[in-house]
Design a protein around this nucleic acid. Structure first.
Lengths: 364, 364
DNA sequence: TCTAGGATTGAGACCGGACTCACATCGATT
DNA sequence: AATCGATGTGAGTCCGGTCTCAATCCTAGA
């Protein structure tokens, strides 16, 4: 059949045309299924194409249609099932509409993200879905905007970038979960997150991530509404790899003023926090209460099963891809997007703190 | 700056050339950093490019260099952290060499895989990494071979497709783990996998997945070597969604001839198997022993922590991408690839079966 | 039989870069 | 001053498709 080994040149319309004894234009029409072509010509062309095993060069096609049928996705870490699931929603939706997906991972580095966006733009993707590493430094996203190519944000908002954004309202779910912990009697509630900051946390400082700001806001509001002081000394940012998270957890749990409950900001952090708690010989929820973001399947398998904040990640993926494709194809929004609400799923990892006397502080 | 809203046409070399008052050829040279260009011209061109915010069209560039600097990756399910991690290895490595990655998910459907491969080939990716859904029907992979474009297989081998393949030796690790269970006293060892088959399992039947065949082989050899009959009635294939896996698990554990140990073929299956075991009120390892493929972090958090077969998934991703890029760039293999060996990590989920009398069968 | 009007058809422009080729330019050599 | 090799430079082709446009073919209606 085909000459052995690597065959250099691909079969082109011109080759097919020659084989079918018609002009390039006619072959292209028959192949591309447009314009007027007689049955006779069409048959000969298709037969020749079949015979030669012709495959259109999508690059060339994209070049003069201006459409690549490809969307670019930029996320911080696909290894994190949170994004894995969102990605699944995106690819499922994209495929349904005939789009492919180029994925770029940024390790949550802004420089890598800037690069990723540029590369995708250069590749002439039809649109972009970005989970911005920073909600503050967003000039590269504004450039996308200016380039005229559709952009949609996933998971996190970005200041000054006025595009459709698919993320849950972190403030309210954070408020709700904190309230849940406070009502269980907790006053010393810790929060562990990977957001990077220059300096340790102080109330009201500007964070790079709108998500985390919103969560901290929710926590503070819950304490305020309960008439209690917010223990900002238990906010731990800059949690990095597994070791550093475990160290932070040990710190939080030691000393006279130890935390009685810990909120883990994502599934990866949760793994290390729980591991550190177990290693320290403490039990959940008798010694420490625990609550985490993202409802992964494994959270039901620990003893006790973990109380989690479920986020509709897959749906967020679907919604963002659907919205992007709608924009690409120039259609108006049919209606309001889906309600992307997080839910507090109470399982067994939240209980009353050991030291019940803290309840007496309730009067503040 | 830029005219508001969507600007239609992109800035091209021709535009830059005009602005810099030089020929298109000179502008292209200055921009592309090739050929001979005087300092004066280079400066003017670069200044004009900057001013106009020129960005090269990678599509056009690819078209006449014949290189897209993109590799295509086809996997069954990115949602599965197994592939998520491999993907991470691939993108990390690709980025380092200046390649981008197009990801296509197939849901483990062969039709989708055939499609994915064709689409990527049409998009003129420089090479392909495929985790084949089927190890038997591989004609589409052979076509890739014939097209002359580099191909590398990940995670699974494919019959009749002679390309570099990065997967662990499932036979030996399966043998080793089964031996471990047998030595602990187990005779009724079940194996649960999602591979689809026409008919229920019978010894020696051809399976679609080389991985699973190899694992079953290893199990059988371990029983053979121990002089014991292999309980093929406990091989459960076609495990689908969470519900069906839980149902299968309940079946395996009920009746007079119940399984005393279960091997889960991947992390997703494991979640449902463990959940079903816990729900049934049985305890691991007192009532059932449990062993699974893939060492995910959460396996350390259950009570007891789970005994697992760790696979170097991230390294497999790295190795496959590195090999592919090497092929693309026409370099010879520097040496033998990395040793991709799976390891049995003994934690707490394997114990002696309750019914110790089975030991007396040892003489067979 | 003649002709208007739609169906077909082929030549060639074009998309945006990379690259070939022939034609300057220029300082250095003899 | 004539020669030579090393740059510089611009015109134009090519990659593999899509698409415009003018020319040609047909067939029905007059």
């Amino acid at each position: 059949m085909s000459t052995d080994g690597s065959r250099r040149r691909d079969v082109t319309v011109a080759d097919v045309a020659k084989a079918a004894k018609v002009s390039k234009a006619q072959a292209a029409r028959a192949l591309g299924n447009y314009g007027a072509v007689s049955d006779d010509v069409r048959e000969r062309v298709l037969a020749a194409a079949e015979e030669l095993d012709y495959r259109p060069n999508e690059l060339a096609r994209s070049m003069n249609t201006g459409k690549s049928n490809t969307i670019g996705v930029v996320v911080g870490d696909i290894e994190n099932p949170h994004f894995g699931l969102a990605m699944r929603g995106i690819t499922d939706t994209a495929k349904k509409s005939g789009y492919n997906v180029i994925l770029i991972n940024t390790d949550e580095e802004r420089a890598a993200e800037v690069d990723a966006v540029r590369v995708l733009l250069d590749k002439r993707v039809d649109g972009l879905i970005v989970a911005p590493a920073s909600s503050v430094e967003t000039s590269h996203l504004q450039q996308v905007r200016e380039s005229g190519r559709p952009l949609v944000l996933l998971d996190r908002a970005a200041a000054g970038v006025d595009v459709e954004t698919f993320a849950v309202d972190m403030g309210s779910i954070s408020y709700e979960s904190t309230k849940h912990l406070i009502e269980a009697g907790h006053r010393r509630i810790a929060f562990v997150s990977t957001v990077r900051t220059e300096a340790p946390y102080v109330a009201g400082m500007e964070l790079d991530s709108s998500q985390i700001s919103d969560r901290l806001d929710g926590i503070r509001r819950a304490f305020d509404d309960a008439g209690l002081p917010h223990p900002t000394d238990l906010i731990r940012l800059n949690a990095g790899d597994a070791d550093s998270i475990m160290r932070i957890t040990r710190e939080l749990l030691s000393g006279p003023d130890a935390a009685t409950a810990i909120i883990a900001s994502d599934g990866l952090i949760a793994l290390s926090v729980v591991e550190a708690i177990q290693e320290s010989g403490r039990s959940i929820p008798d010694d420490v209460s625990f609550l985490m973001y993202d409802d992964f399947a494994w959270t039901r398998l620990t003893t006790p099963p973990l109380t989690v904040i479920a986020q509709p990640v897959y749906d967020m993926g679907i919604a963002s891809a659907a919205a992007l494709i709608r924009q690409i194809e120039g259609r108006k929004a049919a209606g309001p997007g889906p309600d992307l609400v997080a839910t507090l799923i109470k399982r067994g990892s939240v209980g009353a703190p050991k030291d019940a006397e803290v309840l007496s502080q309730a009067g503040g």
